[in-house]
């Protein structure tokens, strides 16, 4: 009979510990959710910001044209100015 009451006590303690541990796990899982949602929002915003990257191709073309004009201008200066 005594062993049964000991077992009751052990089960009560086990129930309390189990409840605390499971509550901690659930709290940790719930704390991750808003963080992941925030990261998803930042990733979407970052992806939207990168829409302007395609303008780099235009910039590349402009720079090529500028350097080509610079080369022509330098050639003219090479003809116009005497060497050192």
């Amino acid at each position: 009979m005594l062993i049964l009451w000991v077992m009751v006590i052990v089960l009560i303690v086990t129930l309390v510990i189990l409840a605390v541990l499971l509550k901690g796990i659930l709290g940790a899982a719930r704390s991750i959710t808003p963080t992941v949602t925030a990261i998803a929002g930042v990733a979407a915003a970052g992806s939207k910001d990168l829409d302007a990257v395609i303008a780099l191709v235009t910039t590349q073309n402009y720079i090529s044209q500028v350097v080509a004009g610079l080369a022509n201008y330098g050639g003219s200066l090479d003809v116009a100015l005497p060497d050192a």
């Binding site: 899982a29 959710t33 992941v36 949602t37 990261i39 998803a40 990733a43 979407a44």
Partner: peptide, 22 residues
């Protein structure tokens, strides 16, 4: 906990989409 992990999985999928776009 399983329900929360499911939400996390869905959120990570959105993150993965955004990162893939980036």
């Amino acid at each position: 906990t399983i329900v929360e992990l499911g939400k996390i999985n869905a959120g990570l999928s959105q993150v993965l989409d955004g990162v893939s776009e980036i």
